[in-house]
Nucleic acid binder design. Structure first.
Lengths: 150, 150
DNA sequence: GATGAAATTAAACCAGG
DNA sequence: CCTGGTTTAATTTCATC
């Protein structure tokens, strides 16, 4: 993982559809080493996948809620069960087990407040052992990037 | 935006490197309409961009903190200034203006707790008009996806 | 590790229904 | 809107340094 690798990763984070030729030009290299480095970065897991990033307003997922969840009982079985169930909820964009007073924080994306209500009523609160639920809504997204600085 | 478009978006969210030919096979279509639909979905903004998703452990950004920020004064000029400054902080992965007691919630990714300390000390707290800062750290990432269900 | 060329495959374009 | 063929360009492989 030298500077050339890092530059390649920086470029691919911004635009995964760029050609090896263009990257090679930026790095004053030929296509082959760029190609081989990308393959290696994929193989070694630095690049997990390539994704199309969609516009959540246009696809109708513009309501974002951050939901703090605390468990009633904190034994491993309940925690594991919660984590497994969360994986299958398509409204859950992110979920973190937290240090501090609150056990989990979830980022939820839905079409409307009505859909949020339905999500909590029929999906989230059906999970066993949930103690406290506390949601705050996003008024405005200031920044959201998939790029890491490297 | 018909069912074919939605299926294409679902596929591209999971794997942006898939060929038009493979998508065409899955949809029982030829390459041309798939190609044209993707181009249209890009042009109309449904697809914002294509990104390489990196492994944050491997690139050394494995510490995630959620930071609640409240402003001292709530006039527009201060808020705008805060939002502009946040854009340039490379440690900030996400930032939301929230409804409720707290003004902003930031998701921060850094290499270590020491780096987090430096981030707060030398970058975040240098921004004018910050009142309260309150960080909780992620113990475990349960779910994190860029895919929306459509 | 890199170059440069050759082979393979995909993207991009277009005439026609 | 789709089919199918053509052109153009990128990916992938490989011999060589």
């Amino acid at each position: 993982m030298d500077e050339i690798d890092k530059t390649i990763l920086r470029i691919l984070q911004k635009d995964a559809k760029i050609t090896a030729k263009e990257i090679a030009t930026q790095l004053n290299l030929t296509i082959s080493p760029v190609y081989e480095r990308i393959r290696r970065l994929e193989k070694e897991g630095y690049i997990k996948r390539y994704a199309a990033i969609l516009d959540k307003e246009l696809i109708g997922r513009s309501v974002t809620g951050l939901c703090q969840v605390s468990m009633q009982y904190h034994n491993a079985a309940f925690i594991d069960n919660f984590e497994k169930q969360i994986q299958d909820l398509e409204e859950v964009q992110e979920c973190y087990h937290m240090a501090g007073q609150v056990d989990f924080i979830l980022k939820i994306n839905v079409k409307s407040l009505e859909d949020y209500h339905e999500f909590v009523r029929y999906k989230l609160s059906k999970i066993e052992n949930i103690g406290v639920l506390n949601t705050t809504f996003v008024l405005k997204e200031i920044k959201h990037t998939s790029e890491f600085y490297i």
